[in-house]
């Protein structure tokens, strides 16, 4: 069940208590990190909507949104590049890693035209960013300068007769395909964990000595692709209510403000940052 609550929250199922209890909180100590970030654009052959929403737990703890995204279109090659990064929350400055990787990866991809080469270069440059982190000035001095980020990226080449999507990911940031048949994850990997062990959120992240990157390709004929952080990806994977609600809302591209409110839907225990970039091909 999905609904607008009396408080104006977009709700899917049981909203829990936190979403209604946590209103605007004190601002973060990292003023480069807006609570929410939106983008909408149209390119030949596709509509794009992007929204990143600061999670309820980060608001409660006065921590910044650690998700980042970028959307770039290369006119010369008719290539749309989308990058979504999820800063690893156990490190205090992961929003800086996520911001750097979201910023630098489109450039690297358009130069190399190969995800492995692009991510390897960005990973090396991110290691330099990490090394310099203790020396950068910030409003808040932090004793912990650690940072890391996951990555999912899509490059869609809009050719004369076909639209080919090249997908790359490291960690639990995910890519989904939506059409009339419903949702399909394009980044599912078989779990090698112990079935009896309690659930764990441990992820592969950058920087890494040897980045573990997976790459896939698919031809797009219709439908929509969504690049999401786990704040969206986890409930989308785990809950039929969420799959149904988002499939209905995102069958066609909504206006960007509606899209952002939907990305920030309230659902009990889902308190993480949320980012989704949707590409509707036409």
């Amino acid at each position: 069940m999905a609904a607008l609550s009396e408080t104006g929250l977009v709700v899917i199922g049981d909203p829990g208590r936190t979403a209604a209890a946590i209103g605007p909180c004190a601002p973060t100590y990292f003023p480069d990190s807006a609570d929410h970030e939106l983008t909408e654009c149209a390119v030949p052959g596709a509509q794009v909507r992007a929204a990143s929403v600061r999670g309820l737990m980060h608001r409660h703890k006065r921590e910044p949104r650690q998700d980042r995204f970028s959307v770039v279109y290369d006119d010369a090659t008719s290539t749309l590049v989308i990058v979504v990064c999820d800063g690893v929350g156990e490190f205090a400055l992961s929003q800086e890693a996520a911001a750097f990787v979201a910023l630098d990866t489109p450039r690297a991809y358009l130069m190399h035209r190969d995800w492995h080469a692009a991510v390897a270069e960005v990973n090396r440059r991110l290691a330099d960013v990490v090394d310099c982190a203790p020396h950068r000035t910030r409003l808040l001095t932090t004793p912990d300068h650690g940072m890391a980020t996951t990555l999912a990226a899509v490059a869609i080449h809009f050719g004369q007769t076909e639209r080919l999507a090249s997908i790359a990911w490291a960690g639990d940031t995910s890519v989904w395909f939506l059409d009339k048949g419903g949702w399909a994850s394009l980044t599912d990997e078989k779990s090698d964990g112990d079935r009896e062990a309690p659930d764990s959120g441990r992820v592969q992240a950058l920087p890494a000595v040897s980045p573990r990157l997976t790459v896939a390709q698919m031809e797009l004929t219709d439908g929509a692709l969504f690049v999401t952080t786990d704040g969206i990806g986890n409930p989308l994977r785990d809950a039929e209510q969420v799959r149904d609600a988002l499939a209905e809302w995102w069958a066609t591209p909504p206006d960007v403000f509606t899209f952002a409110r939907q990305v920030g839907f309230a659902r009990k225990s889902h308190l993480d940052d949320r980012t989704a970039v949707g590409v509707w091909v036409s």
């Binding site: 609904a3 607008l4 149904d244 209905e248 659902r267 009990k268 225990s269 889902h270």
Partner: peptide, 18 residues
Amino acid sequence: MTEHSEDRKPEGEGQIIM
């Protein structure tokens, strides 16, 4: 208000429990 007709789906699917 937007309502989905299929409202018998499990409420707590995906909920984190500590």
